[in-house]
Computed example of a mutant assay.
Amino acid sequence: MASLHSTVAAVLPAASIATAATNEIGKRGLAYNNNNVYGNATYANDFFANSSQVTWGYDWGYPSWNLSSVFEFVPMLWGLPSGNDPDWTAAVQTAGTVNILGFNEPDLTYSGSSNMLPAAAAQGYLTYMEPFGGSVRIGAPNVLWNNYDSTSSGGDYSSRVWTSYFMGNRTGCHFDFACIHWYEDCEPGNGESGADWFTSNVTDAYNTLQLPIWVTEFQCYGSDDQQATFLESVMPWLDSQDYVERYAYFGVFPGYLLDGDGDALSAAGKAYVSS
């Protein structure tokens, strides 16, 4: 089988392979939802609207649940719909929509993933995403990119192989950027560094896919202080890589970027809004 790198290079137009322009600030985003006591984007608006570093958000779907206009909202088609969805079309065509996301972890098989075969995902992109090409920028499916060829996260084969099959089936589609997820320990042990694991996986995704990278979900498993230290280590690196367009730490929820009660930023949340 040809390498994934060669498969991608063979089917992508040169304009899509070009890396993103350097962004000095503003790559950080918010992964949030409306599953809270307010039923909307209050947590995102209250705690992050004053950070110049945080400029966009998404909620694994649409609508935005009243996300503040200081952020760019990025709608996502989470899974394969059963037919044309006028609400999806309306979300993409809403004024201010610049980028769209598609299919959340279709490479995995657990209940929280969109779980689909590569050929079905490719046909879904052709039907529901590609018609908007040229009017908005289209992100490739949001796949797990942990430790290159690991099969430990639920799939019958690695996310890398799933992505290879998907790319081989997506004739007629184009992508403006690639989307990846990453979850591992903050401190893996044996002297290894979670931050090093993370940066090496992001680098590998770019080298493989040859597209600007959005890290739409990532988190290291550990204490609040360990996560803050992790973020303080990796964010300067992310901000300095021209090919990393955006990233969103998981997530705007109590016990994550917020404290357990949802009343204030956690240590990780404070690190996330720092310059």
Rank of each mutant, 00 (worst) to 15 (best):
N34A: 13
V92A: 11
S114W: 01
G83W: 13
S69W: 05
W88G: 08
G79R: 12
Q53W: 09
I100E: 10
G61C: 07
P106N: 09
Y43E: 01
V70A: 14
D107C: 06
Y58M: 03
A49H: 12
N115K: 14
V70G: 09
W78K: 12
I100S: 11
T94G: 12
D59A: 11
Q93W: 04
N40Q: 07
W65E: 04
W65C: 02
N50Y: 15
G96K: 04
L77T: 08
S64F: 01
W65H: 12
A119E: 13
T97W: 10
V54N: 04
G83H: 11
N33R: 01
S82H: 00
A120Q: 15
Y110D: 13
N115A: 15
W60I: 13
D87W: 01
G57L: 06
Y58C: 02
W65N: 13
L117Q: 12
Y43C: 02
Y38L: 06
N33L: 02
A41C: 06
D59L: 04
D87P: 00
G79N: 15
L117W: 12
T42E: 01
A119K: 13
G96D: 09
F71P: 01
P81E: 09
T42W: 00
N36T: 06
I100P: 10
L67N: 04
V54H: 05
A119H: 06
A41P: 03
A90P: 00
S69A: 13
L108K: 06
S82N: 07
P63F: 12
L67S: 05
G112T: 03
F47S: 03
F48K: 01
L67A: 07
Y58L: 05
P106M: 08
L67R: 03
G57D: 05
A91L: 03
N40I: 01
F48S: 01
P75S: 06
L77W: 03
Y62S: 08
W56E: 06
F103K: 02
